[in-house]
């Protein structure tokens, strides 16, 4: 496979490069090597959460419940540690406890034809309120930490390269292989292109939707465990910034590789761009809400570009 960096598909890589160079130029703190690797570490959690979301958006659904599910898993982690379950079991229990929430979304969408947005808003609210019930709405602090989990969150190979990022990178390459080389990957995009045609072609829509929702919840659950480890506590209301960061990354990602369609590699680059933006804004001392405004506009901008481009290809009736 020959990689041509000058194709339009790779525009996002250039955007990332320009962004990094820009911040490096104005801030000496930003261009330090350990800060650049810290960006990669901080983007890993977001990237982990949006892998499933990427495929859901590609198949024409949407998931807004992933930050809330992660928050739920984080407090389940803290609770398991509190009642004396060892870490080894907790890292299995907490992600699995998130799966029923993904199943609920998929069930509502598949069986009752809920609009995905409404179903996942409802599930997000269920997740948050369940998480609040565990400890009366308060954060639950971890009774003790685990060296192994800490190593996954903060560990650095050679004192520089974050372990977490390497694992996420490996996961994304595996996901890319699934997406591009298996029938499931092809069916996924077929669903997004034309639901009716793919049903006629015999694609089992419900099973695909179900499995991606379960995957999405599972990954959100895993990031919940990592979140609990990095905050030393389970928090019922983390949500906030992960929501817009994650969705913006997915839609940024849809500008590259497969133009106009969300895809895993695009999402990864998108997540790195968002993390770079947040990091640069913090280091330069710019108020955080400038970041919020930028991300919101960026998201609307990406969607705009994609849609206008799609319109040029397929002529439509004039409005």
């Amino acid at each position: 496979m020959r990689i041509n960096l000058f194709k339009r598909d790779n525009v996002l890589v250039w955007a990332l490069l320009v962004l990094v160079l820009f911040f490096s130029f104005i801030s000496p703190d930003f261009r330090r090597l350990d800060n650049l690797f810290e960006i990669l570490r901080s983007c890993s959690l977001i990237a982990l959460m949006i892998l499933g979301v990427t495929w859901l958006v590609a198949s024409g659904e949407i998931d807004v419940s992933f930050p809330n599910i992660a928050a739920f898993a984080s407090i389940v982690t803290a609770y398991c540690i509190k009642i004396g379950i060892p870490w080894g079991a907790t890292v299995v229990i907490a992600p699995i406890s998130a799966i029923p929430l993904g199943l609920l979304s998929a069930f509502l969408i598949n069986t009752f034809r809920f609009p995905a947005l409404i179903a996942t808003i409802a599930v997000a609210s269920v997740a948050t309120s369940l998480a609040s019930m565990v400890n009366g709405g308060q954060p639950l602090y971890l009774a003790h930490s685990s060296d192994v989990v800490e190593y996954f969150v903060y560990g650095k190979i050679g004192g520089l390269v974050p372990v977490l990022f390497l694992l996420v990178l490996a996961l994304f390459f595996f996901a890319k292989w699934i997406q591009d080389n298996t029938t499931v990957g092809q069916h996924l995009y077929a669903l997004g292109e034309n639901r009716k045609a793919s049903l006629e072609a015999g694609i089992n829509e419900k099973r695909i939707i179900l499995s991606i929702f379960v995957l999405s919840a599972l990954l959100a659950g895993i990031s919940g465990v990592l979140l609990a480890a990095s905050f030393s506590s389970g928090q019922p209301r983390i949500g906030g910034s992960f929501f817009i960061d994650g969705l913006t990354a997915v839609f940024l990602g849809s500008l590259m590789v497969k133009f106009g369609k969300p895809n895993v590699m695009g999402s990864l680059i998108g997540a790195i761009i968002i993390a770079t933006l947040s990091n640069g804004i913090t280091i330069l001392g710019i108020p955080f809400y400038v970041g919020t405004i930028t991300k919101g506009l960026l998201m609307a901008f990406c969607v705009g570009i994609t849609m206008l481009n799609r319109k040029n290809k397929a002529p439509q009736l004039p409005t």
Binding site: T292, G296, L297, M299
Partner: peptide, 10 residues
């Protein structure tokens, strides 16, 4: 979602 977030930032 995009415009809403931007306006919330504003």
């Amino acid at each position: 979602i995009g415009t809403g977030t931007a306006v919330f930032g504003l």
